[in-house]
Design a protein around this nucleic acid. Structure first.
Ligand SMILES: [Zn+2]
Ligand SMILES: [Zn+2]
Ligand SMILES: [Zn+2]
Ligand SMILES: [Zn+2]
Lengths: 159, 159
DNA sequence: TTACAAATTGATAATTTTTATCATTTAATT
DNA sequence: AATTAAATGATAAAAATTATCAATTTGTAA
């Protein structure tokens, strides 16, 4: 934790940005909820618990800054808000998501399974891949059996 | 074209919805721009050219309806608006997208390359896949060579 | 056809999320 | 300490989407 914060501090300062108390509070909330996919509002409320003086605009600015520096990732699961999560410190590419259409849970595939497909894309489309997003929409193991007609669930809920 | 419209009319009526003139105009715009990924505003402006009396709310309602019935797909490339495109009439699953971080163009991989990965997901995660979204972010063949430091492009532009 | 009920529409208000503005505060530098 | 730049908080503004509601259209039944 302290190690991660220190590392982020260095990433910021290497681009001439400071790790202000507000930014640090935001970073810590993201680290403490690393397995979640928090919206800006989520982060704001969690930060406010500890540092009630922080403003929403600062949280938005911090998330944008961390995203610009590729310290965190922006995600969108079609529920109207942008969500954020840490990038794996080492991973070049992004893990994958399993989005349950019944309960809304987002599980993760932490490995990158797209290596072979990416090679094909680069070759067949002459497309230089920098990043990717892969999300499966369906029914998670928890909700198995609770859904009569899963096909019905697809549609407006998903982008 | 007429065939597709007729087919959609049947899909609607099988769920007790009517293909009103406004809905038909919207469907035709989507069909005429099938290779694009239009936003609601895009669709609205195009429909308005032919049927100036249509209201924006009706376009939103129609897109939502078509999406609910899985006649069209909602997409999100992180530019703040939801985009729409027809589902391949036959395809069970969705094609993939190549989003150029330099020029914003969206190209398509029309085949589904995820078959093997989906089998793995279903087995290893006990997750029943209904649909998926796969987008690669990078530099398209048109922009090749025009970008000095492609890694810099990743970040805030993308969800 | 006429009468009636339900579905749909258009105009617009309201909501939601995100960004912009700007005066003030904080931090770094001379 | 004085000077400059960076960052913040409050809040206005923008942008996209959804909700409301009176009016219109459509389908059905007498
Ligand atoms: Zn579930
Ligand atoms: Zn994740
Ligand atoms: Zn390009
Ligand atoms: Zn497409």
């Amino acid at each position: 934790m302290e190690e991660r914060v220190k590392q982020i501090k260095q990433q910021l300062s290497s681009h001439s940005y400071k790790l202000t108390p507000q930014r640090e509070a935001t970073v810590r909330v993201l680290l403490e909820n690393e397995q979640d996919h928090l919206s800006a509002e989520d982060v704001y409320l969690l930060v406010k618990d500890k540092s009630p003086e922080i403003g929403l605009a600062t949280v938005y600015r911090t998330l944008e800054l961390l995203s610009d520096l590729s310290i965190i990732h922006k995600l969108n699961f079609g529920d109207g808000v942008t969500r954020y999560e840490f990038r794996a410190a080492d991973a070049d590419h992004h893990h994958h998501h399993l989005y349950c259409l019944h309960c809304g849970t987002v599980d993760e595939i932490t490995d990158d399974w797209l290596g072979a497909i990416e090679k094909r894309v680069e070759k067949e489309f002459d497309f230089q891949i920098i990043d990717h997003r892969l999300t499966f929409h369906g029914i998670c193991y928890r909700c198995k059996g609770q859904v009569k007609d899963p096909k019905k669930l697809v549609g407006s809920k998903v982008t």
